[in-house]
Design a protein around this nucleic acid. Structure first.
Length: 827
RNA sequence: GCCCGGGUGGUGAAAUGGUAGACACGAGGGACUUAAAAUCCCUUAAGGGCAACCUUGUGUGGGUUCGAGUCCCACCCCGGGCACCA
């Protein structure tokens, strides 16, 4: 070998040693953490305040973990590590939402049985999650598709059943022809199935519901919750509370009476007609044998069909027809003609509404069909009032006009009169104060295989009854025909279906439906701390410490589904005295969404980016930090890997500075810079601003790279980076403590106290005094921070550029902001 | 239509009412190298000027203020949620 080649090889070897080898180091620490059980939280420990740090658990659908998961889980774990270093006893569990449509659809597509494919996907995801290197307490992992777990999901059903909160009802339900199952309202978007994008239709089937509507009012209480305002608003809108009055009404010539709801009852005297929903069951009854029957029913059918369609434009397709019937004079203003109208909906109130000139929609409908209107509320301006009288436009409630009738309220303002008016209805026995909600009961049964069987038995003699608790779980059998066919697949398994009645011992059959996945995920956070318990779903004693969840991080798309269901279930268990906490999640944070070329990542678009290749190439630390550095955690962003090299360089720079030789004594400048950085990083992480925390650290590293640091400050910097780069910092920590080769004996950096900064060191003695003239920057001068007002003005006026601007000018005003700037206002 | 977010360089983005563009990518130039990669140094909002500096500039138009990316009003655009709820 020629001599120069040998030297080259030697240099290269030195370079390799200088280089931080993430792949090797990360694997090493993941193994050490695991063997030392470093992140197995002692749930009964009295040391450190308990802190339950939770991410929404993933479902193993076969996509494996994608970039979005990393974007969520990485920072969430950094948060947990930060809290641990702040001295909290952090519990950070993980698990799998393994039952349900995504997993089953994947199984059907691949032709592998759901149990097998789910197990395989879970295994892959565990591998990926371990590569992430999060501080998950794997000893508390849950998998909702395992009997140990779903036994208690079934137990939860029985708790609901026991309290009359679970019931079976034949109901027109959302039916997805693609998934061949019914869907909850929440799973239908614009008439399209959330999962398979098929057009959803209505079908009348016997279904199981959970009475979430009983909890509508309780769920509106958000006191004590640190949740995004937006999410609270979304839930509130979804629950849709509306206060008003119910008026008892009846159809003339029939015995049918009902309560007509009015949320703006002040203009009740204006009501001149009434509308009924096209799908109202009463309609066919009152039309039977009527001369208009054919025409009316045809119109109703047309409306129903239109409403089912994908894009139903309310304004464009407004239509209706007179039924020939009347609502018997409810207000002493005469009978109201009853119309079928496209805008009346069956699902709200009683499906029949009384209409007036003071509602935009009613007004438009009346105009279209020339139905007489009679306004009772007018603007103050007489010219405008005349226009309203002539029905030139709809003068509606928001305008807060002056009422003309009834006599008792003449001349009073609409807005102000409300409560008095409601009292008046009560006194006159016309109507009752009522509250209506948009929220519907939660449809929890699914005619699908891959879910927790509903624990109900139907006895030929004794009828419907719950499976006794001691007989749980009702095990989901492995069957061949698991594919959806419109009927519950379990019904085809006689081995499953046939059973004995627990009461009389006679022949009985099981309920073949399974539960919605959202049932499984509605209580998993209660299971984590007690996941190893065999005879109970959870231990109330442990929950005294470990509920509610302190921090819950996940996507905003669950606002009206999972997050609402979990609150409902938690509240029901609380009311039953089974758990100590009223609410499940004390603090909630939504991570932003990661898109690819501006579009949501999805398998159907084929734009799902897998993290694996990046993790392999750059390591978990780099990949996590890159995702954090993209921008604010709650904002998300569009994925590209262009800048990842910047983080690679950053890691190498850190390695170089912190693993290199130490100074005997740090320079005052570097010391000050380090303390400033402690402050910045601490505050930034506290606000989940990981991007700026990293920027602050980059700034520091750039500043001290040349000169270097002493041992003490190297350790501080290592700690600061630790939440964001756990492997790198653990390696550096061992190196700095000279315990690199001891491994098991070394103390983890995550058991060290988070560094504190010295206020005195941060305080700058000198500042750059900003000099403005008419608010524009005209100069800057270095001076002491404590400079007085007069000295500052004098000093500023001495600056040459400032003098140029002040020459021949009259100073009208002088502004002084201590320690910051002066501003001369000149003319 | 209603309710939330958001609009800042070539790009991702920073900025308690007080120096707009920190940090990073990219780009341009230079050093090292036979060369490349890596690394290091310089420049980098636009326009003008040899320079000191100057002008313009945070979606648009107004306003408040000594001073506005930031506060107020109106509007435009993008993203998300809800949408016949009486």
């Amino acid at each position: 070998m020629p001599k120069n080649q040998a030297t080259k090889k030697l240099t290269l070897k030195n370079q390799v040693q200088d280089f931080y080898n993430s792949a090797k180091v990360e694997k090493k620490w993941q193994e050490i953490w695991e063997t030392k059980k470093l992140f197995h939280t002692d749930l009964k420990s009295k040391k450190g305040k308990p802190y339950y740090n939770l991410v929404m658990f993933p479902y193993p659908s076969g996509d494996k973990l994608h970039i979005g998961h990393w974007y969520n889980f990485g920072p969430a774990d950094s948060w947990g590590r930060f809290m641990r270093m702040k001295g909290y006893n952090v519990f950070e569990p993980i698990g799998f939402d393994a039952f349900g449509l995504p997993a089953e659809n994947y199984a059907i597509k691949t032709g592998i049985a759901p149990a097998t494919s789910t197990a395989k996907n879970v295994k892959t995801m565990i591998r990926q999650l371990k590569e992430l290197g999060a501080m998950y307490d794997w000893s508390h992992m849950v998998n909702t598709s395992e009997p140990d777990y779903y036994r208690w999901t079934q137990w939860l059903f029985l708790q609901m059943y026991k309290r009359g909160l679970a019931y079976k009802k034949k109901a027109p339900v959302n039916w997805c022809p693609g998934c061949k199952t019914v869907l909850a309202n929440e799973q239908v978007q614009d008439g399209i199935c959330d999962r398979c994008k098929s057009e959803v239709t209505k079908k009348k089937l016997a279904q199981w519901f959970w009475r979430i509507t009983d909890y509508a009012e309780k769920l509106l209480d958000y006191s004590g919750l640190d949740w995004p305002e937006k999410t609270i608003t979304m839930q509130k809108n979804w629950i849709g509370k509306s206060e008003g009055v119910n008026f008892r009404c009846k159809i003339k010539g029939f015995d049918y009476s009902f309560d007509v709801f009015d949320s703006v009852p002040q203009t009740f005297k204006a009501q001149t007609f009434s509308v009924i929903a096209a799908d109202h069951p009463l309609l066919s009854k009152i039309m039977k044998g009527h001369s208009l029957e054919k025409k009316v029913m045809a119109c109703a059918q047309r409306i129903n069909k239109k409403k089912m369609a994908k894009r139903f434009d309310a304004d464009e397709s407004m239509e209706g027809i007179f039924t020939g019937h009347y609502i018997e004079d409810p207000y002493g203003t005469g009978d109201l003609p009853l119309w079928v109208a496209s805008f009346a909906i069956m699902d709200y109130g009683c499906g029949i509404v009384n209409c007036s000139a003071h509602d935009e929609r009613d007004f438009a409908f009346a105009k279209k069909y020339a139905i007489p209107l009679r306004p009772v509320m007018f603007p103050e301006d007489p010219i405008e009032a005349k226009k309203v009288k002539n029905l030139e436009y709809c003068y509606h409630h928001a305008s807060d006009g002056i009422l003309t009738t009834p006599e008792e309220f003449k001349g009073r303002r609409w807005g102000e009169v409300r409560q008095d008016m409601i009292a008046y209805f009560k006194k006159k026995k016309m109507g009752q104060r009522t509250v209506n909600y948009r929220l519907r009961d939660w449809l929890i049964s699914r005619q699908r295989y891959w879910g927790a069987p509903i624990p109900i038995i139907n006895c030929e003699k004794c009828g419907e009854m719950p499976v006794p608790e001691k007989d749980l779980p009702v095990v989901l059998p492995r069957i061949k025909n698991y594919k959806p066919k419109g009927k519950a697949p379990l019904a085809t398994s006689t081995a499953f279906m046939n059973t004995r009645c627990p009461k009389c011992g006679g022949k009985a059959t099981r309920e073949p439906d399974t539960m919605d996945t959202f049932v499984c995920s509605s209580w998993y956070f209660l299971r984590y701390p007690s996941s190893t318990l065999k005879n109970k779903p959870f231990d109330p004693e442990i929950l005294k410490t470990w509920s509610p969840v302190d921090m819950y991080i996940g996507g905003p798309e669950h606002a009206c589904m999972h997050l609402l269901y979990a609150r409902f279930v938690n509240r029901m268990l609380f009311d039953a005295g089974l758990i100590p906490s009223k609410e499940p999640f004390k603090r909630l944070v939504h991570q932003g969404m990661i898109t690819k070329d501006g579009a949501k990542m999805s398998k159907s678009r084929g734009n799902v980016v897998s993290p694996d290749a990046f993790v392999q190439k750059y390591g978990s630390d780099v990949f996590r930090m890159y995702l954090m550095f993209m921008g604010p955690f709650t904002q998300g962003g569009d994925w590209n890997d262009k800048g990842i090299i910047g983080i690679v360089r950053f890691v190498q720079k850190i390695w170089k500075v912190l693993s290199g030789p130490s100074l005997a004594k740090i320079s005052p400048e570097s010391q000050r810079a380090t303390h400033r950085t402690i402050k910045k990083v601490t505050e930034n992480i506290e606000n989940l601003h990981f991007n700026t925390a990293l920027a602050a650290l980059m700034e520091l590293i750039n500043e001290v790279t040349k000169e270097g640091l002493d041992q003490k400050h190297k350790k501080i910097v290592t700690q600061l980076i630790a939440p964001m780069a756990p492997h790198l910092s653990e390696e550096l920590w061992a190196l700095l403590n000279d315990t690199l080769d001891i491994k098991r004996g070394s103390e983890s950096i995550f058991d060290q106290k988070w560094p504190k900064y010295d206020e005195k060191l941060i305080a700058e003695s000198t500042i750059n005094l900003v000099i403005q003239i008419n608010g524009k920057l005209r100069g800057m001068v270095e001076t002491t921070k404590l400079i007085s007002k007069d000295d500052a003005f004098a000093l500023a006026k001495m600056q040459p550029n400032v003098q140029r601007y002040l020459a021949d000018q009259k100073i009208v005003k002088e502004i002084f902001v201590p320690g910051k700037l002066v501003n001369f206002v000149v003319r």
